[in-house]
């Protein structure tokens, strides 16, 4: 059961100074990364929590609706419950696509610039 992973990369990157971090924080490039992260993560978080709470409230206070049969013995409650699973999988997938396309390249560019010797 040996781990075949390569040994940790121990090469030390340069750690930027406090001034460099402050300058970076207010740079346009970092502002773009922050915006790209927040404009996805914040509204989606509000959205899935609201959708989950809606489901909880329906379970609590809408018995008749939740008990409506859809197919055979499968009712609205099951359909909505499984829909929660489905939306969770879809959001995870959507975020990962967004991150790979919009966040990772920006983050990597800033990181290599800040840790480089330039």
């Amino acid at each position: 059961m040996a781990t075949e992973t390569p040994p940790p990369s121990k090469e030390q990157h340069r750690l930027p100074s406090a001034e460099e971090f402050v300058a970076e924080q207010s740079s346009a490039e970092f502002g773009e990364l922050r915006r790209a992260h927040r404009s996805f993560a914040f509204p989606v978080t509000v959205g899935f929590i609201a959708w989950y709470l809606l489901y909880v409230l329906l379970s609590n206070y809408a018995d008749g609706f939740m008990g409506t049969k859809v197919v055979g013995n499968i009712n609205v409650a099951f359909v909505l419950g499984l829909a929660q699973f489905l939306t969770t999988f879809l959001i995870a997938w959507g975020y990962s696509r967004h991150a790979a396309a919009d966040l990772d390249p920006k983050a990597a560019a800033i990181k290599s610039r800040m840790e480089g010797d330039a």
């Binding site: 930027p16 406090a18 924080q25 970092f30 990364l33 966040l103 983050a107 840790e115």
Partner: peptide
């Protein structure tokens, strides 16, 4: 501490350091 927040924010989003 504005400087420390700058450091945390940049590090947390970019992985610098």
């Amino acid at each position: 501490d504005a400087a420390k927040y700058a450091e945390l924010e940049v590090r947390s989003l970019t992985g610098t350091g």
